[in-house]
Design a protein around this nucleic acid. Structure first.
Lengths: 138, 138
DNA sequence: TTGCAACTGCAACTCATTCGCAATTACTGA
DNA sequence: TCAGTAATTGCGAATGAGTTGCAGTTGCAA
């Protein structure tokens, strides 16, 4: 467990950290709260996540068409996802399309500190069902 | 003004549409509500936007670290932005890094229907000020 | 012109997230 | 080891974007 310098170690923060560590994918604050069996106040979970984010060991992201933020440990570089519009499964994309692209697309003088790429569509399993629904005008 | 087939033309919807048309960048529902001088109920604005989005003539997006959705007319292809973390200016990026990149990065069997790319950082004007603040630990 | 499904306004509601404040706790230095 | 203190926590109340139920209104097809 990496611990940001100057950050107090408390039971609640360690547990939030472990919840993220134990999870295969990004979690929402409420999901973490539930996984910790509501042992701590939800505001504490939010504050721990905010502290981790500020310290740079956690990244926060919001998926299109949702209003809940997801949090994940920043381990070894970054990752992008293909997100299924039907089952909401997040499939990691190998490599980063942004790195492949010519850097000249960013405006001159702009200092890039990060980026976010999300690809939307239907995963193999949902493809057919989604098309059926679409045909029926749902 | 393009009008989706089967959608009723009402004064409120036309005004919402014009507000988007007249704007240089994406607007939030509240911004539209204000620009229309609160003439209509905010729920009406939301419902008009939802109807436009469903009809495919408006796209909805949410920026990282905010909880307000932005709406824009879908005119001629898509656009990505470099977003300044300090002044929140949205600078259009020429071209689409995703199109340049090899398509093989997306998982096999995944049917892509759309994507979203946001580049974060500091624009030329905010660069220095942002660095100063960072140094002072803000 | 009429009928009615779609649309609107209003107010009350939801839900994620934040905040104020008093009580608690992790760390520092003696 | 222990006291002092600044950071952290828990609680509940507040916020703010967005949604919803419902009664009244309106676009539009016949």
């Amino acid at each position: 467990m990496i611990w940001p310098e100057g950050m107090k170690r408390t039971k609640q923060r360690e547990d939030v950290y472990r919840a993220l560590e134990a999870s295969e994918g990004p979690l929402s604050a409420v999901e973490i709260y539930e996984r910790l069996e509501r042992h701590y106040a939800i505001s504490t979970v939010y504050r721990a996540l905010a502290a981790f984010e500020k310290a740079g060991i956690v990244s926060k992201s919001t998926l299109m068409n949702t209003d809940t933020a997801l949090y994940a440990l920043n381990e070894g570089g970054h990752q992008h996802y293909a997100i299924c519009l039907r089952c909401h499964r997040k499939i990691p994309i190998d490599g980063c399309p942004f790195e492949d692209a010519s850097g000249q697309s960013v405006p001159e003088g702009f200092l890039v500190t990060g980026h976010k790429i999300e690809v939307y569509g239907y995963c193999e399993k949902c493809r057919e069902k989604a098309m059926d629904q679409h045909m029926r005008g749902e």
